[in-house]
Design a binder for these strands. Structure first.
Lengths: 343, 343
DNA sequence: CTGTTAGCGCGTTCAA
DNA sequence: TTGAACGCGCTAACAG
């Protein structure tokens, strides 16, 4: 049942059917109703999206390219919030959301996702080849990193990290330590040793945050060598827990009394593991997070963290793609939230 | 820059270009490389997905229609897990995921989403008109409710609820109560009174779960009238909290000593609010949840709940759509998890 | 191995 | 207000 079939059934031209669905003012209401009625009868549910988008060049679909696998991203609070901001705006303008995995299947057929009218690239590594495979000419916005020639949406990770670290260091901790998120070149879930090399790009979020931490630490007289670091590859409880346990199970005189974590998920894992070991927070151990996810504010002690508005990031990205906002770089503000985990 | 342009540039036919991208075995490697090289030079990034899908009839896109708004669904742990199961399978087979809002914009243009090769409808109300607007003939799977003529993926909500309630009632609580999720016909965040009418469809998840609770309660000599009920419209902390506070702030002799909650999110909110009020769990208040989301198992006390495998639901739905599994109804098993919130 | 041809279903002229 | 004709960019079938 196609538009053409319907036209034949009704004895009108295909243009009339098309108009009945797309420009009601181009034909008499009576005829229009007749068309719509017949369409329902015959089970014709409107112009085919594929043909329509081929013809018009637009699909009303916006794609979000996710750094991590879809599976992972959908279970990550920060990414989910971001997506919900995107979805909110798209929805309001009658567009839909296509999710594209960043690190696709190796044998991915060429651009099964290039139907999209525009692309939002979320937290991809700067040199990923996928980006060059995206069709040029179509609007593209990057989030949390830069793509040459496209506007990026950012927060000031360095300043925010420095800020929260400065706050934490005011309590004069003896043994501060850092838990990083995807900092090392080689995947590593555990202690970072001098042999490890960091990811090359200084535009990486982790590098930016680490720089902020270091600036604050140095101001307090700590050298990087004095501050042990661990790394985590995936921002989930399951991956974090073993690393955190390794940290907390050290002899007490060696165990850090301040943990600067690069995400709330890591910080919450620390909180949970500390609870299990009867390590008092914040008396024996201070913890800071990053992101400001809802979960961190519900439980006691609440997390001291940097809140970034991921939902708003998503909104802005979507609005740029839809042309509701100029395609220009944006830097969103962050907010230091002081919870009980590090007062 | 289209396929045809490229063909002209190279002095070959369009079919050759098409083959170069789609069937490498149909032309000499030398020619193929020449094509690919030239394509890169000219910035041609492969066959246009719109035209290709018009021609082939397939788009390699599968749509998930979500009951709630995208914004809400993306922030709900259960829905996210489901989506991640779907995404995992689609990804593995080179398909992508299109998210469609169930309760769309009123003025939604006809089916901007009917490009999809198949549809997975997640937790929609049975009589939603949207379903009839989906193109017929294309595979359709429903999850957590039934659509006539399509296979559904389910759990046995009634049996699972009965099971957990039976467990909870073994402790002989004096004042059991229920916190429902979207049970009433009219939106209601608060106490359910006799005036309230329930949602009509007995195939609704809430009705099924309530039935299970009632069966267990009756077996212990409780009549429905003796068991106060509250309702919650949206499964978020922000919406749950006021209702939960209303419940917990009652005088102690009136306050429930067992709360059967229809979701883990609700149960976790109860836990948080109880903590704030120094109500001991489980001594003064027992709490049960439903779903088995990760968050409920991280914090102490862990939630007593029914674990359902939402990820697996998503996997199965996607596999059916892709034809990897027969299009037949499936009922997944659930598991009673006994945490400290109701031992 | 390569080229030719005929649509896929629709939107948009332009003329009536 | 309506209809006829064209082509959006591509792929499948076949012919060479």
């Amino acid at each position: 049942m196609t538009l053409k079939d319907l036209a034949r059934e009704l004895g009108v031209s295909t243009a009339t059917i098309s108009n009945a669905f797309n420009r009601p003012d181009q034909l008499s209401p009576a005829l229009r109703n007749r068309v719509l009625e017949k369409a329902r009868q015959l089970g014709y549910s409107g112009p085919d999206a594929k043909a329509r988008s081929l013809r018009t060049g637009r699909s009303r679909i916006v794609a979000v390219v996710l750094a991590e696998s879809l599976t992972y991203s959908l279970n990550d609070a920060v990414a989910s919030e971001f997506l919900s901001g995107v979805a909110e705006v798209l929805d309001a303008h009658g567009h839909t959301l296509l999710l594209l995995p960043g690190r696709g299947h190796a044998s991915q057929p060429p651009g099964s996702g290039n139907i999209a009218d525009g692309f939002i690239v979320y937290g991809l590594m700067p040199n990923n080849q996928l980006i060059s495979e995206l069709p040029p000419q179509r609007p593209l916005v990057s989030v949390d990193f830069d793509i040459e020639g496209s506007p990026a949406i950012h927060i000031d990770d360095t300043a925010a990290s420095q800020h929260i670290a400065e706050h934490a260091l005011r309590q004069r901790p003896k043994r501060p330590a850092i838990i990083n998120l995807r900092l090392t070149e080689q995947p590593c879930n555990g202690r970072i040793t001098p042999e490890h090399r960091f990811l090359p790009h200084s535009s990486t979020i982790s590098r930016a945050r680490l720089n902020g931490f270091y600036t604050a630490l140095k101001a307090q007289g700590f050298t990087p060598e004095q501050v042990p670091m661990w790394n985590i590859e995936e921002n989930t409880f399951a991956v974090c827990a073993p690393v955190v346990e390794e940290i907390l199970d050290q002899p007490e005189h060696q165990r850090p009394d301040l943990l600067l974590c690069m995400s709330d998920r890591i910080a919450l894992t620390v909180l949970t593991c500390a609870e299990q070991r009867n390590i008092r927070v914040p008396e024996d151990l201070q913890i800071t997070g990053f992101d400001g996810i809802a979960e961190g504010q519900y439980r006691a002690p609440r997390l001291t963290t940097v809140r970034q508005d991921s939902v708003e990031k998503g909104r802005i990205a979507a609005q740029m793609i839809l042309g509701k906002l100029p395609m220009a770089p944006q830097e969103l503000t962050t907010e230091l939230i002081i919870g009980e985990s590090c007062p």
